[in-house]
Design a protein around this nucleic acid. Structure first.
Length: 712
DNA sequence: AGGTGACAG
């Protein structure tokens, strides 16, 4: 049910979090007017986008693609779909789609637009995200959805015939799904000359999108009637945020956590009131900084500062209750200091921030196609990203941003972040494109082409999984089924195998748990207690089976939040895993996969996992002395069994978070690896396996390797 | 003996 707020009333988000609305309209304006609709109209007219209403409509009518650069607060996300509706783009029963990269954004923008359009959410204005389709066929005219949902819709309706206009919002973020969707839309446009595409972006880079969609210079048969139509239009809309004053360090700092704490303390002592937002890279850093700030706060209290410091950490893994502190206004007499990861760059907005302290680093995915291993690395951010962070200070009044690097070093940073498409593993993306009829990956029109080796790796994996045949075409039914399942193809393969092995109940749970962030809480300074909690469920088969045990115990508790918390499990994450599990169960039923329980036969579960993860199999190769800790019993080094790349074989070890960290099984499967600062690849979510299961699960890959493994 | 950036289906 949609709740309506009085105009100007502040919208409380979930858990008290206020999410981005990309509209100046989030500002609380006191409105003393009985006629709510009139007040809303007035608010709409005040948005910068309103000045461009006629121009936008003209451009969309005359150009197949329109690129709109609109800063935050311009109202582009909420207003443009309504302009299109008002101008008649939905009069023939078709809809206007507006995609967002995030679920919360879809929900909040849809709610706002429904309110402005006088619609109950799900009627004229609706939305679609995973698990939730709040639209009414035949009634809904404007549909907000995640870009992933729209792409999935193309499986059923490849030409998106339900829509007259598709607006892709926040395109500057260049997420995997956004880039893929833009490539597909360009393809659809050739067959649907009537389709209009709007690409909305917050910053620069617009030229790239313009030339990408420009078909006026392409030779050969033309899909679009005129050169005007073929040439994308470009329009800029000014925003409504204040600019921030930027400050740089005079000399580089060696420890940005300490530097950030120092800077925040200085601001606190010397500057006007206003909350501080610190950007660091990870959970540990955030918690360390909070601890240092608390120490500092005790000192300041003894001084004569009028305000006191109220530090709070904020990262995605933090349970909802603990996140509250970061979003609630600081108590009277306190200055809130939020120490956040990248989550605060785009996903959530903290009101009242006037100062940003930016370490100018972030953890980013990196993929090495030579080894086939992806990993997380702390890397310098781009200038575009830094600008976005700085902008987080200017929502209330002109703010200040303190970058923890020198100005000269800052100028060395890349202009924009490398698109995710060029630094990710792409098996899932390639599989989906294949399912949508893109036969030649190399010839696909990528907005940013991924490295050829990455595509080769993806094709190789999909081939090994049986999703692609020798002709590199999607196999039927296996490849089609894997494309339809909303999970990584490796996990999809494990699910399908579990049907044959009679353990789908168990593998469904494991796959659902791998589809969410870690279900384990990691409260600061309570590592021992967490270990104790984890060890209650730990078994020698590894982390996935241990997780399965924890899940079963949670089920037996009646899915109690209190129980979960007591056992250091994140209840919210478990509930989301339960949703995913239900959705996957539904898919398996539809595919006719028998859903049975292994009844305690763990080996069948391990074998099903082997069927999906065999490319991630490793063998214990040696035990070396730990140079950082010579008194320890040494490091167990693993090598990948399947590694066709030309590079040096990567050395792997079990991540310390694993239940198998202190054991030394001969053969393991891992789900993911992380590169530690000391250069090791650390395997997370590992499962112990027997060597014979590998050739059994994937004879085409493991015949030789399997034999060699036996000889040893 | 030692720890998990942010998203999406």
């Amino acid at each position: 049910m949609a709740t309506f707020l009085r105009p100007g009333e502040k919208r409380p988000g979930a858990f008290g979090i206020t999410f981005d609305l990309d509209a100046g309209s989030t500002q609380a304006l006191p409105v003393f007017n009985k006629n709510e609709r009139l007040a809303l109209e007035e608010q709409r007219r005040r948005l910068p986008a309103f000045q461009h209403r006629r121009e936008i409509l003209y451009l969309v009518e005359h150009h197949a693609t329109t690129v709109i650069v609109g800063e935050t607060g311009s109202g582009k996300s909420t207003q443009i779909p309504q302009y299109l509706l008002e101008a008649g783009w939905c009069s023939d029963g078709r809809m206007v789609a507006c995609t967002q990269p995030r679920r919360v954004a879809v929900m909040t923008v849809a709610a706002r637009v429904a309110e402005e359009a006088g619609s109950v959410l799900g009627q004229t204005v609706g939305y679609g995200i995973r698990f939730e389709d709040v639209t009414t066929p035949g009634v809904t005219k404007i549909r907000f959805c995640t870009d992933g949902v729209l792409m999935r819709e193309m499986f059923e309706d490849p030409l998106l015939t339900q829509y007259s206009v598709v607006m892709v919002d926040e395109a500057h973020e260049r997420s995997l799904a956004t880039d893929t969707l833009l490539g597909l839309l360009k393809k659809v446009q050739r067959r649907r000359p009537d389709l209009r595409i709007i690409v909305a972006s917050a910053t620069l880079e617009a030229d790239k999108v313009v030339s990408f969609f420009d078909t006026s210079t392409v030779r050969g048969p033309k899909a679009l009637p005129s050169d005007t139509m073929r040439k994308p239009a470009l329009l800029s809309i000014e925003g409504r945020t204040h600019s921030s004053q930027i400050h740089y360090l005079e000399r580089p700092c060696s420890d940005y956590v300490r530097a950030a704490v120092q800077t925040a303390s200085d601001i606190h002592r010397e500057d006007a009131p206003g909350d501080i937002l610190i950007f660091l890279t990870g959970q540990q850093e955030c918690e360390d900084a909070v601890a240092l700030l608390e120490e500092e706060a005790r000192k300041v209290r003894q001084g004569k500062a009028r305000l006191r410091m109220a530090p709070a950490a904020l990262y995605a893994g933090l349970p909802a209750a603990a996140q509250l502190a970061a979003f609630e206004p600081a108590p009277r007499g306190y200055r809130k200091i939020v120490v956040a990861t990248n989550i605060a760059e785009t996903s959530v907005t903290i009101e009242g921030v006037c100062f940003v302290v930016d370490c100018c680093f972030a953890k980013q995915t990196a993929y090495n196609p030579l080894t086939g291993l992806g990993s997380l690395l702390v890397a310098p951010i781009s200038r575009a990203s830094a600008a976005q962070r700085a902008g987080r200070a200017g929502r209330l009044r002109p703010g200040h941003c303190f970058r923890l690097c020198t100005e000269a070093d800052f100028q060395q940073l890349a202009e924009a972040t490398v698109p995710e498409m060029q630094r990710s593993e792409l098996a899932s993306t390639v599989l989906q494109l294949k399912a949508l009829g893109v036969d030649n990956m190399m010839a696909f029109d990528w907005l940013a082409p991924p490295p050829a080796e990455t595509m080769v790796r993806a094709l190789e994996l999909l081939h090994a999984l049986g999703a692609l045949g020798a002709d590199a075409r999607l196999t039927s039914p296996l490849g089609q089924h894997l494309a339809e399942l909303p999970v990584d193809p490796r996990l999809g393969r494990a699910l399908l195998a579990s049907g044959e092995l009679g353990c789908a109940e168990e593998v469904l749970t494991i796959v659902a748990m791998l589809s969410v962030q870690s279900v384990w809480l990691s409260p600061h300074g309570q590592r021992k207690a967490l270990d104790a909690a984890k060890s209650k469920f730990a078994v020698g088969e590894g982390d996935l089976v241990s997780g399965l045990n924890a899940w079963h115990a949670w089920q037996e508790s009646g899915r109690l939040g209190k129980w979960a918390h007591h056992h250091f499990l994140n209840h919210r994450t478990l509930l989301r895993a339960a949703d995913i599990r239900a959705q996957l169960t539904h898919h398996l039923r539809r595919l006719g996969i028998p859903i049975r329980s292994s009844e305690g036969d763990v080996i069948s579960v391990q074998k099903a996992l082997t069927a999906g993860l065999f490319m991630n199999a490793v063998q214990l190769s040696e035990t070396t002395v730990d140079l950082q800790n010579p008194s320890s019993s040494g490091i167990n080094v693993y090598k990948m069994l399947h590694s066709s790349g030309p590079g040096e074989a990567p050395k792997l070890r079990v991540h310390a978070s694993s239940v198998l960290a202190r054991t030394r099984p001969q053969y393991l499967l891992f789900w993911q690896v992380q590169q530690s600062s000391s250069g090791w690849y650390e395997m997370q979510d590992v499962t112990a396996v027997e060597a014979d299961w590998l050739p059994e699960a994937a004879p085409h890959v493991f015949q030789r390797i399997g034999a060699r493994a036996h000889i040893q």
